[in-house]
Structure formats: C-alpha cells, structure tokens
C-alpha cells in the first residue's frame, strides 16, 4: 500500500504518497471541509458484535454523558432508535447521530422521547443477537451540532474513503499539494487539527 504522509512543516500543509494511507495535520478552520462528507456518511472501521453504546463509548471514545445528553437522536438503518444497549453492531450497519431537533417531528425522533409513539411504525427494534467479535465497518453520519463536536474525534480515529470521496475532499482542501494516487479502492484517512 501507499502511504500519504505530511511533509516536514512548511508554511503550507503538503503531503506525498508512499502508500494508501493518508494522515493529515490541518489547521482547525479546515475541519469544515469534512462536513459534507460526514453529513452524507463515511465508512468507519470498527469491531463488530458489541452494543451501540459500546461502539460509541469504548471504540469511538465518546464520553458517556455526552452520549446520553447530547446525542439525543440516533438512526440505525434509517430507523429512529430508542435503546442503545439492545442494538448490536453488525458489518455494514448505518449509524446516524444527531443532536436534539426542533419541530414536532424533531421531538418525535428523539431517543425515548415523549412523542415516540408518533413514529412507532418505523422505530428500530433491537436484538440480543450476538455476532462474531471481528473487524468490519459501519457507515457513520454526523448531523448538525455533532459535526464540529464529534468530527475531530472520528477523523483522528480514521475512516475509509472511496476514490470519489477522496477526490471531493481534496477539492475542498486545495492548499494540499497532494500527489493523488490514481487508482481505485479505498484510502484510510485520518486527520488531526491544531495550530
């Protein structure tokens, strides 16, 4: 594999390809460039077979109280979810995280909310089914307030980008003089943000 690593510090962030891994160090204001991708969803490697709560708290290292108080709206495969503990992570699962939303329907979508009955036909039903404890991927989306708050954490941990996703991202980061590996397949990207 090729690796794309950041070159020694210059006045401009640049990277060069060595293998198909991309590790970026960017200025904090470049975080916005990742928001379109994170809204649409990114592929994140994870260990399968655990509960959603464990995925968020143990694997993604999101503080427990943040999960409880801030991530108030969650969708699993397009279904609003009420119980984090009975949802088991399987390969290819689509996980969408959002803060509290306005409107009656926003309130309706809330996890365990008072108006959950209004959407009961589409609610996610959990299971206790155990799956193998092996690596897989989830498709993760972040919405609204969680974009700036969880984006850095997810990006630092790393995600897998298809070629078209990487191309789009690099268009939003024109300051990177990246020698783009022209090939197909995924790139493992991680990014950290700081001065």
């Amino acid at each position: 594999m090729e690796t794309l690593v950041k070159q020694p510090a210059t006045d401009q962030t640049t990277i060069r390809p060595l293998e198909k891994r991309l590790a970026l160090q960017l200025a904090p204001d470049r975080l916005n460039a990742f928001f379109p991708l994170l809204q649409r969803g990114v592929t994140v490697p994870a260990i399968m077979g655990c509960s959603l709560r464990s995925l968020l708290c143990d694997q993604f290292a999101i503080p427990s109280d943040y999960v409880t108080d801030r991530i108030t709206t969650i969708f699993i495969n397009n279904r609003p979810l009420d119980d984090l503990d009975t949802t088991i992570i399987e390969d290819g699962l689509r996980v969408t995280l959002s803060a509290a939303m306005p409107g009656l329907v926003g309130a309706t979508m809330r996890r365990g909310g008072f108006y959950a009955a209004l959407r009961q036909g589409i609610s996610h039903v959990g299971s206790n089914r155990q799956t193998a404890d092996e690596m897989g991927v989830v498709r993760l989306k972040l919405f609204n307030l969680l974009l700036p708050e969880l984006g850095p954490l997810i990006l630092a941990r790393g995600l897998l980008l298809e070629q078209d996703e990487l191309d789009e991202l690099l268009m939003r980061l024109p300051e990177l003089s990246l020698h783009n590996p022209n090939g197909t397949g995924r790139t493992h990207l991680s990014a950290t943000f700081g001065e």
Binding site: Q39, T72, S98, V105, N144, L145
Partner: peptide
Amino acid sequence: HPVTGEGLPAYGTNVLTNVLNEAGG
C-alpha cells in the same frame, strides 16, 4: 436548551432536512 439555544440559532429550521431524510419521512 440545545434546540433553542444552539441548534436553531446555528442552522435554522432547515436543520431538519438531514434528519427527516434519514428517517425516510
């Protein structure tokens, strides 16, 4: 409150687009 103090000021009511689309509604 996170909706009236943060979500609505930052994104307006259109913050619902992504959520409704995700819900299939």
